[in-house]
């Protein structure tokens, strides 16, 4: 066991990453934050629209898109990867729709069938063409955030901003801008599709656009956190935010804060335990969620416990009047 869990050395775990290896640490933390923020912003809407598991499906099924893009272009270029992932995302959405509409299979099963099939195709492609595709199976699952900063990019203040980092930053900015611009449309179509229709918002355009943005975010997060941990990045920030506030702008702000905190804390956890950095970030994110779940001032478990029993000694005010004696 001591081999497994090293002793907690404060200096080693908390101070050293920032004092001795800031150039290595900073890009990782920044990347974790950017992924968390982009995913969290999109994920908030997924949660609102009760589509969290469609996010799950798409995050799995971008894999064959990426693999095919690799095989066709033989490169790791940004554009082919994006196109491949977008195509895969749309194919997934369509497949789910078709299975659900054309047969009596319900939506949950349709999601399960669609994404497992596509993911399986992706894994098979990768293992068949292992020499051609620069991805291994484990990287697919939990990413390689540690290697993100290694490639040469722009150096600013002694810190190397690798191309991946710059790409992720632009994706995050674009996502934030899109949400800002189309906030009204997203909000209305998420809450009340009928109302959206009546004010001239095409709900299915919004739906498919959101799926495209989701695919883009997932594919850019893919390298650093892999296909499955992305789901955590999508859901945890928004879920934590909505435990603490009921107003959407505040929820999104909290989601971004959650992304930043879990990124920093995750790095330290990974330094201590010497394990996967991306997974550690998710574990710390989950820890933050649990914290909010227990201590939230409005809906936390403790709060719930304090106010558990409703006061039922007095009848509610809107009770209709009735003669008790009329009761048989």
């Amino acid at each position: 066991m001591t081999q497994l869990i090293p002793a907690f050395d404060f200096h080693q775990v908390i101070v050293a990453p920032w004092s001795q290896d800031a150039a290595g640490t900073f890009p990782i933390v920044l990347m974790g934050f950017l992924v968390g923020a982009a995913c969290g912003l999109v994920g908030t809407f997924l949660i609102l629209r009760r589509m969290a598991l469609v996010g799950d499906a798409i995050s799995h099924s971008v894999l064959p898109g990426i693999a095919i893009a690799f095989l066709l272009t033989n490169s790791r270029g940004t554009l082919p990867m994006f196109i491949g992932a977008l195509a895969a995302g749309i194919v997934t959405t369509l497949l789910i729709e078709i299975i659900h509409r054309k047969t009596r299979v319900k939506q949950d099963a349709a999601i399960g069938i669609a994404f497992t099939s596509l993911f399986a195709v992706g894994v098979i492609l990768i293992s068949l063409y292992a020499s051609k595709i620069d991805l291994d199976q484990e990287c697919v699952l939990y990413g390689e955030i540690g290697f993100i900063g290694l490639e040469e990019g722009i150096t600013l203040g002694g810190i190397n901003f690798s191309p991946q980092l710059i790409r992720m930053a632009s994706v995050t900015l674009v996502v934030a801008a899109l949400i800002l611009i189309f906030y009204k449309e997203l909000l209305v179509s998420s809450f009340d599709p009928a109302l959206a229709f009546s004010v001239g918002i095409n709900a299915s355009v919004v739906h498919y656009s959101l799926m495209c943005v989701l695919s883009a975010v997932v594919v850019s997060a893919f390298e650093s956190v892999g296909a499955i941990l992305v789901i955590a990045m999508l859901i945890l920030p928004g879920a934590t935010g909505s435990l603490l506030s009921q107003r959407l702008p505040r929820v999104m702000g909290l989601a971004v804060l959650h992304a930043a905190m879990s990124s920093v804390m995750g790095l330290h956890l990974a330094t201590w335990l010497d394990c996967s950095i991306a997974a550690s970030m998710v574990v710390m994110g989950a820890f933050l969620f649990a914290f909010a779940w227990i201590f939230s001032p409005s809906q936390g478990i403790i709060q719930r416990f304090i106010r558990s029993k409703p006061k039922l000694d007095e009848p509610p005010a809107d009770l209709p009047a009735a003669e008790k004696s009329a009761v048989g």
Partner: peptide, 22 residues
């Protein structure tokens, strides 16, 4: 909580998986 079932499922799925990966 007010979170819906799909969110709860996704949350547990990914969190447990992350712990497992660690």
């Amino acid at each position: 909580t007010r979170l819906k079932e799909d969110t709860a499922l996704g949350l547990v799925l990914a969190t447990f998986f992350a712990v497992g990966v660690c």
